[in-house]
Nucleic acid binder design. Structure first.
Lengths: 143, 143
DNA sequence: AGTTTTTGGTCAGCTATATTGACATATCTA
DNA sequence: TAGATATGTCAATATAGCTGACCAAAAACT
């Protein structure tokens, strides 16, 4: 925290600009692949989080995405119809629906991830892996 | 680049997840402020880039935002009508329009930035300023 | 001087993704 | 059993992007 006092406003402003570029680039390349499945970026974000947190519930996903259940529901419906995910009744509380990728969903995720990896590797090629870890720690919130 | 070979897929996947959170949080807090001016996030992104690159041309801004000129034009028109920016003919090439924040735009930017700074400071409070610099370097592209 | 290219503005219609509000159903908890 | 919780769904609306067509001013080329 002490170190933060040395952060100049201009550095923070630049940082905000970089976050915009990072997000846009990270989620733009996979759009061609998604189109083959008739999906968009909203589906991509959901799939990514489901892969990272297999078996999470609908409300878990809502908390991570911070969108309304109506918005999410449309996305989940598309994913189910397209056989990319399956919903299973929660074992403890059967009101819950736990979300899992199935074969098709896993295949799509890997296809997308390969595409993203290319860019990330490129973005980091003049850097060191340490900064990845640090960035992650920085933005770690309660997700 | 060598270091990158040690980056595991899971770390990259986590990183992609964190970029999403970072972007969403960074651009969500200011929405209340923007609403007072009848602006949205599209206006925010434009204002941020104009502040960082005063006097940039319309096509410069298009290249940074990577949206169509029709989309950008609506945003710029709103900003001009709301007296947040001014367009001036380029001195060298008078086809160009150079974009500047005026008083109202600068005031809005500062209001937004103050809000963002709160969150960034909070996000980084368990880290060190070094990682900011590194992250910036990582995603530095041709902007 | 005349032609072509570049830069920017605008109209019209479409799509993706989000919102609010209302309401329904199944299940758990007290 | 009554109330709270988790989820699903309908309808209307807003934001911000897209494509395609067309236009004008200024610069560049020949």
């Amino acid at each position: 925290m002490r170190d933060l006092l040395y952060l100049k406003d201009d550095q923070i402003k630049d940082f905000i600009e970089q976050i915009f570029y990072a997000y846009r680039e990270t989620y733009s390349d996979p759009k061609k692949i998604l189109k083959k499945y008739s999906f968009g970026t909203a589906h991509h974000r959901a799939i990514h989080l489901i892969e990272r947190h297999e078996g999470l519930t609908v409300s878990d996903l809502l908390n991570k995405l911070k969108i309304t259940k109506q918005s999410l529901n449309r996305v989940l419906r598309d994913l189910v119809n397209n056989k990319a995910i399956v919903l299973k009744k929660g074992e403890i509380d059967s009101r819950h629906r736990q979300i899992f990728l199935n074969e098709r969903g896993k295949k799509l995720f890997e296809e997308i991830f390969l595409e993203q990896k290319k860019r990330i590797y490129n973005a980091f090629k003049n850097s060191d892996s340490d900064s990845v870890i640090k960035f992650k720690k920085c933005f770690k919130q309660n997700y």
